[in-house]
């Protein structure tokens, strides 16, 4: 490939637009904001194109710009979201946890073998849908901590909560995610089986 610095916005949007949009939407739960952030990222990339050395792939370069903007936005959102009192449910109520901080809890059995479906692309489609359906508070915490890999300390600072609170929020987010994954994955496969049967 030549060292061609010209860019073709149509090709960019065609090749990367959907992936960038999904990335933003899953973490923001807001179509308009996700669209804005994708657009801003493309614009920033156009301005910075001289600095793009072609060392990283075009996709990772664009995703890097997007990620930067997205984390900024999430940090702001974290400061605005209301962190109300958590109603205790699940393991947080147990004596062991209250006394020692050790979670003792038996998660309900999965309705399918989760590791076996990791190889299927459709499973990750369901996964992204489920992350985007977490409630706002859980979605922000999960996005910052689990998806973007910010430290406990940083996330707690942005959300203005204690580590224990974050911990419980994340625990609930993972639980809701599991429930959503099971429901939608099983639905999807039932649908498929029925479609096959109908042929």
């Amino acid at each position: 490939m030549s060292n061609d610095k010209t860019i073709d916005p149509d090709r960019w949007v065609e090749e990367h637009g959907d992936i960038m949009y999904r990335y933003a939407y899953v973490r923001l739960k807001d179509h308009a904001v996700a669209q804005d952030i994708v657009q801003e990222s493309f614009l920033a990339a156009m301005k910075a194109r001289e600095r793009y050395q072609g060392r990283a792939s075009e996709r990772s370069w664009l995703m890097g710009i997007l990620r930067h903007k997205l984390i900024d936005h999430l940090r702001k959102a974290a400061r605005e979201v209301k962190m109300d009192d958590l109603q205790p449910e699940g393991f947080e109520e147990t004596f062991l946890f209250k006394e020692t901080g050790i979670p003792h809890w038996q998660p309900p059995k999965w309705h399918f073998n989760p590791r076996r479906v990791f190889e299927q692309k459709e499973f990750w489609d369901v996964f992204s849908g489920c992350v985007s359906k977490l409630d706002r508070k859980m979605n922000i915490a999960f996005s910052l901590k689990e998806l973007e890999g910010l430290s406990t300390e940083e996330v707690c600072k942005e959300l203005g909560v204690e580590p224990t609170y974050l911990w419980v929020i994340l625990y609930r987010a993972r639980n809701n995610l599991k429930t959503c994954l099971e429901k939608n994955w099983l639905n999807k496969n039932t649908g498929k089986r029925e479609a096959h049967a109908a042929v």
Binding site: D18, I19, Y25, G129
Partner: peptide
């Protein structure tokens, strides 16, 4: 796993631009 797929796979219809 999800993070890897997220940067490669074409998203499902309802999560496309």
């Amino acid at each position: 796993h999800y993070l890897q797929h997220e940067q490669q796979d074409t998203p499902p219809d309802d999560l496309r631009l």
